[in-house]
Nucleic acid binder design. Structure first.
Lengths: 213, 213
DNA sequence: CGTGCCTTTGACCGAATGGTCAAATCGGCA
DNA sequence: TGCCGATTTGACCATTCGGTCAAAGGCACG
């Protein structure tokens, strides 16, 4: 062995754990926790079922590991929203980062969607505490921008929800989007549309599009 | 028996079939097809498992019946978009109708979401044919409005996607929305926000919010 | 009140599920 | 090369799964 006795992470351990998580992400994101089977995960990872359980104590443990790894990176784009930046740049930057995540990590988005659809039994508490704190924090920033007249007076929470909904839609409903559009890559057009939509939505001015005479 | 020999739908048949579909909607919308179990559906419907299979040939048949019943009503709001109406009224009306459906039929929205997340194995073909035809049709209408300068020049397909994403988000991610917002009913604020967003997005004028000098 | 069909269910089946365990194999180091 | 822990697996287990079936129960009508 190479590593020390305390830090017991062999090369082969890292590789197999990674393969299991990769396979688990595939299966869980498509069928949810209850719909996924260990045999399927093992098969996709190229390991036998007992071998999978040698690296993870249970099906639940694989799922938990995936969720934990996900939550870390999932909120990073929102955390990067800078209170001292230019409002429009900050919000459009957030939209772009989230859209790129939907394009590059669609399975992670679907895994999250599945967990929420099931009622968030495992991450419900985190949603009501950690997530809520961060969203409230960023919402306050956005509210400040609105109060200063730098952007339109929109409800910040729903603005954030809308960014989640619009960007994750291109990951979660990818099959539907491509079925309707045909074969072409939806993301370039999606980005152009979302930039238009958010420039218009947050531009300072009267609350509605029907301009006053 | 009361009904004729040909029209064999007893009162009790209608009641039990309805109870099974109701229970199936609950379970399938939460756990997806593979994650749902007949025992759970039977228990929730107040019937024994063999009795459930007396009314539906298989688990698959219950799921199929739900999907078929869903597809009929799911696209009705889009079909109601009137090419001869006032563009802003038509689009905002569509948004409102879809939002009401998310509020009143969240389980149906989640059932649909689950099917799409699984890769739409059962309705994939419909998406690429019937749905696509209808969306293309409505997209042409919207494109015409844009060409006439009645609304902004937005890509119509992505405009429709955005309406789906924003409205269904309040059904599919209801748990998350409520966890972040607290106990209050999100829908009144959601409607106000969406009306603002779409008024701004489709208002005629320059493509972006950064006004020219 | 009895007959015939609709409805319900207990018992059961084979397959798949998550998980266990002891034994076999592997891989690196002395 | 031989050793020892890390790794892998075949066999197995209890439970749950979707589904079957024959028998029992219920209901409306003559």
């Amino acid at each position: 062995m190479t590593g020390s006795a305390v830090e017991g992470t062999t090369r082969i351990q890292a590789r197999n754990r990674q393969a299991i998580l990769e396979a688990g992400l595939d299966v869980f994101s498509q069928h949810g926790f209850r719909g996924a089977t260990l045999d399927q995960i093992a098969g996709e990872a190229g390991l036998s079922k007992p071998n999978v359980l040698y690296y993870f104590a249970s099906k639940e443990a694989i799922y938990a590991a995936l969720l934990e790894r996900l939550l870390d990176t999932w909120l990073a784009p929102l955390a990067a929203l800078d209170p001292d930046g230019e409002p429009e740049d900050e919000i459009l930057g957030y939209v772009r980062r989230k859209l790129v995540m939907s394009r590059d990590y669609p399975r992670e988005s679907r895994l999250f969607a599945n967990e929420i659809l099931q009622g968030a039994p495992r991450i419900g508490e985190i949603l009501g505490t950690d997530l809520r704190v961060m969203v409230d924090d960023k919402a306050a920033v956005i509210r400040g921008w609105a109060a200063d007249g730098k952007i339109a007076d929109v409800e910040p929470h729903h603005l954030i929800f809308s960014i989640w909904a619009l960007t994750q839609h291109y990951a979660d409903y990818d099959v539907q989007v491509r079925a309707v559009l045909g074969g072409a890559d939806p993301f370039p057009q999606a980005e152009a549309f979302l930039v238009h939509l958010y420039r218009r939505t947050i531009a300072p001015g009267p609350p509605s599009g029907r301009e006053r005479t």
